[in-house]
Structures are given as C-alpha cells and as structure tokens.
Amino acid sequence: MIKRFFATLFVAFFLMGNSLPSQAHPHSWIDLETALLFDEKGQVTGLWVGWLFDDYYSAFTLEGMTPNAQGAYDQQALNQLAEQNLKNLSEYSYFTFIQADGQKADVHPVTDYKTFVENNRLWMEFTITLKEPLHPKTQKLEYAVYDPTYYVEILHAVEGDPIQLIGEGAASCGYQLKKPEPPQELSLMAAGLDKDESAGDGIGVHFAERIEISCQ
C-alpha cells in the first residue's frame, strides 16, 4: 500500500530530507506546466496546473507500492494520495497565485484532478476555477506557481510547450515569462538553510516565475 500522505506537504518533504543530495533550499523540485483557460468572451475562467515531481519525492511517495505486470500503479491509491495532497495544499492557495490589477483572485476549491506515474515520476494535474472571471483586456493579469517557503522549487519545464493559453477567447492574447531575479543575499541565505530550517513564507515569491498576460 502506498505510504500514507502526511499532515502537510511540507512534513513529507522534511521527512525525506535525509535522502536528498543537498542540505540547502530547495529540497525538492517540480517541473511545471500551466494553461490559462479562456471562455468564448475572452474572459479568463481558471488555470490548469500540471506537476511532475522529482525522482526523490516520487520514490519516497511510492515506497511500498508495487506496480503490476504492465508497470501501472494502483489508481485508487494514487487518487487518494492526490486528494490528500490537494486538501493540504488548499491551505496554501494550491501554491498557485493569480492576480488581477495587483489583487489576488478568489478561487473555488479544487475538485478536478488527475494523477499517474510516468517513468517512475509522480504526475499530478488539477484545475483551479475562478469565482469570478477576469478580463485580461482591461485588467493587468498575471499568475505564479511557487512554494512560499521555497522548500520546493517549482519552475516551468524546459522542454515541450509548458505554458499555454486555451479557449476560443485566447486567440488575441499572449504571455511573457518573467524569470526570478532574487537578491544575491537572499540566494545565499536560502543556500545556507538546513532541511529543518525555514526562512518563512515570504522567501518563495523571490524565486518564482511570473506569467504576464496581454490581450489586444
């Protein structure tokens, strides 16, 4: 049976810290894919988020679970893991922060998700639905996906098409990826943190990618 997910995502990362090759933050890595969702009116209604967890976290999470002859893991167990994972992440906005004119957008609890194992790495995807649609032609719209404590580094995948704008209303829109530029002293501080230390919830934003949306 798959290892029971812990009270919060951070606890799991902390407990696996002894097996990681580095003692500096971050301690785990996620390859990210995102897709901003548009309706036919050109309004943004939500954000699809895909996470591919690193080898270390995947191995830790899948420990004790044996794939079948076809190499597939028990889907019910994977679904239970994802449900607990998302429940814990809901306290932290699912590590997903959408802003319009500098104000955080309100979202519904996540109910749409999917998870599986690909090449021994755990994949989880979920859809965040906005309580009110956003208007990218009249509002300054941007989003970022990051761990506020920077215990986990979340960056868009370097291969494929990791950022997409989806829907009929997205035709006149584009995006710009803003790479993080953390101050040198902050990078040095993060590099010096042990696995049982935290710099608080304010450090992660400095290491986050930001996606800015523009529509004509």
Results as ranks from 00 to 15, higher is better:
Asp106Ala: 15
Val152Cys: 11
Gln103Cys: 09
Glu153Trp: 00
Lys104Asp: 13
Leu141Met: 13
Gly160Met: 06
Lys104Ser: 14
Leu134Ser: 01
Asp101Val: 03
Pro136Leu: 08
Gly167Glu: 06
Val152Leu: 09
Leu141Ala: 10
Pro148Tyr: 04
Lys137Tyr: 12
Val158Phe: 00
Asn119Tyr: 07
Ala105Thr: 10
Leu141Trp: 10
Thr149Asp: 09
Gly167Ser: 08
Val145Met: 05
Gln103Asn: 13
Gly169Pro: 05
Asp101Leu: 01
Ile166Phe: 11
Val107His: 03
Gln103Asp: 12
Val145Leu: 05
Gln139Tyr: 07
Gly169Asp: 08
Glu125Met: 02
Val117Asn: 07
Ala157Met: 04
Phe126Asp: 04
Lys131Asp: 13
Trp123Gln: 13
Leu165Ala: 00
Gln103Phe: 11
Val158Arg: 09
Glu159Asp: 14
Ala100Gly: 10
Pro148Asp: 06
Asn119Pro: 00
Gly160Cys: 06
His108Ala: 15
Pro136Asn: 11
Lys137Trp: 08
Asn120Met: 11
Trp123Leu: 14
His108Val: 09
Leu155Ala: 12
Phe126Cys: 00
Thr127Arg: 11
His108Tyr: 15
Glu142His: 15
Ala100Tyr: 01
Glu142Ser: 15
Thr115Leu: 02
Glu159Leu: 12
Leu165Thr: 01
Tyr113Arg: 01
Pro148Cys: 06
Val145Glu: 03
Leu155Trp: 13
Ile163Ala: 10
Glu159Cys: 02
Tyr143Ala: 05
Pro136Ile: 07
Glu153Asp: 15
Glu118Asp: 15
Lys140Val: 13
Tyr150Lys: 01
Tyr146Asp: 02
Asp161Gln: 14
Ala157Leu: 03
Glu153Tyr: 03
Asn120Phe: 11
Thr149Cys: 03
Phe116Cys: 05
Lys104Val: 13
Gly167Leu: 07
Glu153Lys: 09
Val152Tyr: 01
Asp161Lys: 13
Pro109Ile: 12
Glu159Ile: 09
Thr115Met: 01
Phe116Ala: 11
Ile128Gly: 01
His156Phe: 06
Pro109Asn: 12
Val158Ser: 11
Gln139His: 10
Pro162Leu: 06
Leu122Cys: 04
Glu168Pro: 03
Lys104Ala: 15
Glu168Asn: 10
Ile166Arg: 15
Ile98Val: 15
Glu125Pro: 03
Phe116Thr: 08
Glu153Ser: 14
Lys114Ser: 13
His108Pro: 02
Asn120Lys: 14
Thr138Gln: 13
Asp101Arg: 01
Phe126Gly: 02
Val110Pro: 04
Tyr113Trp: 09
Glu125Ala: 08
Ala105Met: 09
Thr129Asn: 08
Val152Met: 12
Gly167Pro: 05
Phe116Pro: 00
Gly167Asn: 08
Gly160Asp: 05
Tyr151Ser: 05
Thr127Trp: 00
His108Asn: 14
Asp112Lys: 13
His108Lys: 15
Lys131Phe: 07
Pro148Glu: 06
Pro148Arg: 04
Lys137Thr: 11
Thr111Trp: 00
Gln103Glu: 15
Asp161Gly: 00
Glu168Lys: 14
Val152His: 01
Thr129Ala: 10
Met124Arg: 10
Gln99Tyr: 15
Ala144Asp: 03
Ala100Val: 01
Glu118Asn: 13
Val158Met: 06
Glu125Val: 06
Asp161Tyr: 06
Gly102Thr: 03
Lys114Glu: 14
